[in-house]
């Protein structure tokens, strides 16, 4: 599904990713952990095609195709989804309107018919109930005045509707209390499927108690420096990142 080879990327001439190698096979959930400033969020932006990041070397193979030159919206339609650490607010645009615009834009890009309103509403209803997202919340402007938990639930709701092949979750646990964390994690777990890969970026191990990964990678100074099973997360929790924090960027 996702194969990253010797990826180097910089922003404003400063190199942040310094040779990332990573393979996430179809259907697997991998976690990336690491100290602050190790390049985790940069990796999520480079994978999703955010402007301003220069890929200076290496490849990102998604379903076998190099997507380095592909614009962000095309990657989205091809099935790359990023759950933002800080979801953005769009005043005056109802959440429901945004969901419909996004879903139909992707369907159109893939040459599929746009959904009819009843069909769309039905899908939203099914997905929102699972995530405890109320109709009232869907009518509010996108993320405006949402609590931390509401924002993250809204991200997972978008993921459920857009049905990506690769979901990147950037610090999805930040700003969540225990109950919200459980709801969000259950939502993510419900979306695990043999056809979908996930890359869970987190600073803390507690998220991985709920979303148990197939593999854990440790990132430091712009590289993947260690890879192991779920037990690696527990080790990091106990020992901290001191061993890896040699080269902050």
């Amino acid at each position: 599904m996702l194969e990253i080879k010797n990826l180097h990327a910089s922003i404003d001439g400063k190199e942040i990713l310094r040779g990332v190698d990573l393979v996430v096979p179809t259907g697997e959930v991998h976690a990336i952990m690491g100290p602050n400033g190790s390049g985790k969020s940069t990796l999520s932006y480079v994978l999703s095609g955010r402007d301003g990041y220069d890929v200076t070397e290496g490849e990102i193979l998604f379903d076998g195709n190099d997507i380095v030159e592909m614009p962000a919206e095309e990657r989205a339609s091809a099935g790359v989804f990023l759950a933002f650490q800080y979801p953005l607010e769009i005043p005056g645009v109802a959440t429901m309107t945004f969901l419909k615009a996004a879903l139909n834009a992707q369907r159109k890009a893939r040459g599929e018919a746009e959904l009819t309103t009843p069909d769309f509403m039905r899908r939203v209803k099914v997905a929102s109930e699972k995530l405890n997202v109320s109709q009232e919340m869907l009518r509010r402007p996108l993320n405006v005045g949402f609590s931390g938990g509401e924002k993250k639930r809204n991200e997972i709701l978008q993921m459920a509707l857009l049905e990506p092949k690769l979901a990147i979750l950037d610090e999805t646990d930040s700003g969540l209390d225990i109950d919200a964390l459980r709801v969000v994690s259950e939502g993510v777990n419900a979306l695990r499927s043999p056809g979908r890969s996930m890359l869970v970026i987190t600073h803390y191990q507690r998220l991985l108690d709920h979303i148990v990964p197939d593999k854990v990678h440790v990132m430091s100074a712009g590289r993947i420096v260690r890879t192991g099973g779920p037990e690696l997360a527990l080790e990091l929790e106990a020992k901290g990142y001191a061993d890896y924090a040699d080269e902050p960027v």
Partner: peptide, 26 residues
């Protein structure tokens, strides 16, 4: 804002659709 626009692009909207959406909300 760039990040507002990127958020929309990441969901599959073109930059024109994104600006239209943001302006209409405004």
């Amino acid at each position: 804002a760039d990040d507002q626009l990127f958020y929309c692009l990441q969901r599959g909207l073109s930059s024109e659709e994104a600006v239209a959406l943001i302006v209409n909300g405004f």
